[in-house]
Design a protein around this nucleic acid. Structure first.
Lengths: 333, 333
DNA sequence: CTGTTAGCGCTTTCAG
DNA sequence: CTGAAAGCGCTAACAG
């Protein structure tokens, strides 16, 4: 009994069941044209030696590996993770496995990982960006389909999925207007982030539509609590009549709330506050709990997975899909 | 010219270079015994058709796939991610790829993913827990080595890597004592978390050693800002002479700071505060910035990767390795 | 219904 | 130095 390898192979199963490898294969894969009794024998043999089919061998033959590569720019970013989870989840159900790579925002490393993934014959790729600013395409001549999530590709031939931040901004503004606030300010992060500009544009649009304008203008700064505090102190000094503050992120909003409490401004009585990102721990830990805009990133990740599976089976799409965001009301509005 | 498949194979390269597959293989893999000129020809041919060797075929032959599985309990947890990053990074350099699965803390799903990974013939597994409480082993009879990270296995035959929370607690207490604080309180999370109990034990030990005791006793509660606020209000009411508050997490610490500011207690003048986890965004966003204990989770992940590679190459280890944590001083102490 | 045969793409003896 | 041959573990025609 020459134990060629430690792991049992189909041949071992076949031998044990007293059939040929081919029959064993058919039996295990539920092909009809196998005598029930034979199948039972094979199945029990497989069970007995705890046989696990070698997906590699299968993939070699089939030309499909049932794995996809996921290249992310910054794992530690708040955005990659939910997308990753959504994708992992969506794939998981369909028995696809995810090979994960973190390129650390470095295009050399990205290229390197790309090669590794291609070498492992992934059936497709998801590229997750860390910001919504367009990023260079991985290229058109890849042997497998690619879906860009969160950070779109600059190439319109690629398929990209991004949250609709313009509408997110507009919705949040309208949400406040509907609740009777008219003097609305906007404190946000670095202006060189498309996300910041998009949200600001959305807000501006909605306000204009209602015949209003942003109190004090869009205040770009940084995505930090500190900036939220600083900007707020300045804002309430210059515009004591402000009724609502839309923030570019939950972090900023925390700073805003902090500064407001410091100055004993009642939230939401005197001024309403909204965050963005709906980062639970931040939003729920806030006092009062923070109303925020959720970009539905898990859904985005799940959709990316679905789109990729579609693409793998031949349904090509391209362009940028803007995905809806949603407002999560809490106590600050 | 029958294009069997879309992806170029070694045969295509060989054909183009006018050599046999065997020679092409040798040339590409840097085997000696290939004429330099031949090798050059092969290399350029490979380049020309952008040939990527099929890792599956190679793995099938070699019995090693160069992939490892990483099963996590809760991806969204604060702890899995740095570990994942550390591991990914450590593997990345060694050309191993990581297959990621999130079992969502569900053992059925874990089993399912385990089979999928085994089927893909991963060379090893890392299991990342979401808490430091021991968890059931994946089993002893797995065909590949396993390393448990953060959440140790209950089986001492397994190798587990965990942060040394007892020492973390002790170090933080000593850190304060060294700075002249003697009346030290401890507000932490749920008592059913081993992490909470370990840290408390460490603190208690260090204080006892110094002839001190925890002001008001260990205050277990929940891992939330809210609890930090509540507990603090209570604490400073009952023990107005308290000089330092050790917190079970940065989140709790944020609540503590909040409550302290509310009562106009100066930090660190009147009372020092320390967090745990060193969750940057929380710690740095705090006012004043929060001194915290960092569990070095990335290093833990990287070590897990190294240990796994060792185990794959035959160096077996077992038991629980306690990894050092470190204090990150900021403004609250 | 079952077994034989022929590979998937690659590496590795082992003769030339 | 080079190439022919023999598989790694599995599936998919075909014949029996």
């Amino acid at each position: 009994m020459p134990e060629r390898s430690l792991r049992p192979t189909l041949r071992d199963v076949a031998q044990l069941a007293g059939v040929s490898v081919a029959t064993a294969s058919k039996a295990l894969n539920g092909r009809d044209q196998v005598h029930p009794e034979t199948r039972a024998r094979v199945l029990s043999a497989a069970e007995r030696i705890s046989f696990t089919p070698n997906a590699l061998a299968r993939g070699l033959l089939a030309g499909q590996t049932g794995t996809v590569g996921l290249i992310t720019g910054d794992l530690d970013g708040r955005f990659s993770l939910p997308i990753l989870m959504g994708a992992e989840d969506a794939f998981g159900k369909g028995k696809m496995s995810v090979l994960l790579c973190d390129a650390r925002g470095d295009s050399i490393r990205e290229q390197y990982h790309l090669e590794a993934l291609l070498g492992r014959r992934v059936d497709g790729l998801i590229v997750v960006g860390s910001r919504t600013d367009p990023r260079p395409s991985l290229g058109r001549d890849l042997p497998v389909p690619v879906v860009y999530a969160y950070g779109p590709s600059t190439d319109p031939e690629d398929l990209s999925l991004v949250p609709d931040n313009v509408r997110g901004g507009a919705d949040s503004a309208r949400y406040l207007i509907d609740r009777g606030r008219t003097r609305i300010a906007h404190i946000t992060g670095e202006a060189d982030y498309l996300a910041a500009r998009d949200r600001a544009a959305g807000i501006e649009g909605a306000l204009t539509e209602a015949g209003l304008e942003i109190v004090g203008g869009v205040q770009y700064g940084s995505w930090t609590e500190q900036w939220g505090r600083t900007a707020t102190a300045r804002l309430i000094e210059a515009h004591p009549d402000v009724e609502a503050i839309l923030c570019g992120s939950d972090q900023i909003a925390r700073g805003v709330l902090d500064a407001l409490r410091e100055s004993s401004w009642d939230v939401p009585g005197r001024v309403a506050v909204m965050g963005y990102d709906n980062w639970e721990i931040f939003a729920v830990g806030a006092r009062p709990q923070l109303t925020s805009v959720d970009m539905n990133l898990e859904a985005l990740g799940a959709l990316a997975a679905r789109r990729l599976v579609e693409a793998i089976s031949g349904e090509a799409r391209s362009g940028i899909e803007q995905l809806p965001v949603r407002i999560v009301p809490r106590e600050t509005t």
